[in-house]
Structure formats: C-alpha cells, structure tokens
C-alpha cells in the first residue's frame, strides 16, 4: 500500500525538524489540523495543500521548541566562506565538481543539506525530492515564484559549497 501524500508530509517534516521523533510529532499535529481546518481546502492538488500545513506546523513547532534552528547561517558561520558570483565555477583545475559528484553518497548529501538554512533546505527538498513545480513550491512556502527561483539558485550553490567543504575535511 502506498500513500504518496503521507510520505511527502513526513519527508518534509523530517527535513525541517532534522529529527525522526520531532518529525512524527509535527506530522501528527499537521494531520489533525488538516482535518480540523478542512474549510481551507480550495480544491487543487491535495499534496500541495497538505504540505503547506505540514510546513506551517513544523515552523510553529521549531519556534516553540528549538528557535535557534530557524536562524541557521551555516555557510558564513561554520566555514567562513562567503558566497560570491564565482561560486558555481570549478574551484581547481582538477575539476573538483567531478570528484565531488563521484563521492557524494546519500549520507554526505544528508549532512550537507541539513546544514543549510531552512529557507534554502525546504525549497531544495520540495523541488528535488518531491519534484514540485515552482508554482507549488511558492504556494507551500508562501513566497513569490521569483523568490523560489532565487532561493533555489542560491541554495544549490550553497549545497555544492558545503559538499565540497565536507570533501576536503573527509
């Protein structure tokens, strides 16, 4: 039996809280809210609607229990790297991109993605793991499509940076 929407709900909660038990709490709360506030459903994609509620619930939960998580500034704080226009260009002549791609296993990607600020992490998860359109991502995250565009662009660059950083320290 497959329930695609439930898996999507849990996956998003898990990536936002970064903890399996907290993700369970968030999903249960979101599930109740979804049914209690069904009036809010305006038709359309049930998955996007449910994910909107999950995201909102996750942020409320974090605000209450782990407010520090909402202010992750990984790239500046932990690596001292500052993003600039050339960040998506190869760093060395030996093409570290190729090296990084070859060695980026699931665990390393998980570690890197967890370190991004939530506003970048969520658009990457919704786009790359849920394969949602920019329009749906915009609805779920409550931001304009132009912002989805710039956050994805920056988020991908940051993620690459962090992966490269992990590579060097490995």
């Amino acid at each position: 039996m497959a329930e695609p929407h439930l898996d999507a709900a849990y996956n998003l909660a898990r990536w936002l809280t970064r903890d399996p038990q907290d993700a369970e709490d968030v999903v249960q709360e979101a599930y109740l809210r979804a049914f209690r506030f069904f009036d809010g459903f305006r038709g359309g994609d049930g998955r996007a609607w449910l994910l909107t509620i999950v995201r909102h619930t996750a942020y409320s939960w974090l605000k209450q229990n782990r407010p520090a998580d909402l202010h992750v500034e990984y790239v500046e704080d932990e690596t001292g790297l500052h993003l600039h226009a050339a960040d998506d260009a190869p760093l060395h002549a030996t093409d570290p991109q190729t090296l990084m791609l070859r060695q980026a296993d699931g665990l390393r990607i998980e570690i890197a993605l967890r370190r991004l600020a939530p506003e970048y992490r969520e658009v990457l998860v919704l786009r790359e793991l849920e394969d949602l359109s920019y329009k749906d991502v915009a609805q779920i995250a409550g931001i304009p499509i132009g912002t989805v565009m710039s956050r994805l662009s920056r988020g991908r660059r940051q993620l690459r940076r962090v992966l490269e950083q992990l590579e060097k320290t490995a």
Partner: peptide, 29 residues
C-alpha cells in the same frame, strides 16, 4: 554542472518515507 548536480541530488538524497507504525496510528488520532 547544474544539471549533473540536480541529477545526483535526485538519485542519492535520502527520501524519508513515513514509518508504517505512524501511518497506522494517524487515523486513530
């Protein structure tokens, strides 16, 4: 490079499926 990177993410980033125990517990709530 962007396309390669996106493909690697889709192939290898962990997708966290809902645990079966939680799935069966939800309707009871």
């Amino acid at each position: 490079r962007l396309r390669d990177f996106s493909r690697v993410l889709r192939e290898r980033a962990p997708y966290h499926r809902m645990p079966a125990a939680l799935k069966s517990r939800l309707p009871g709530l």
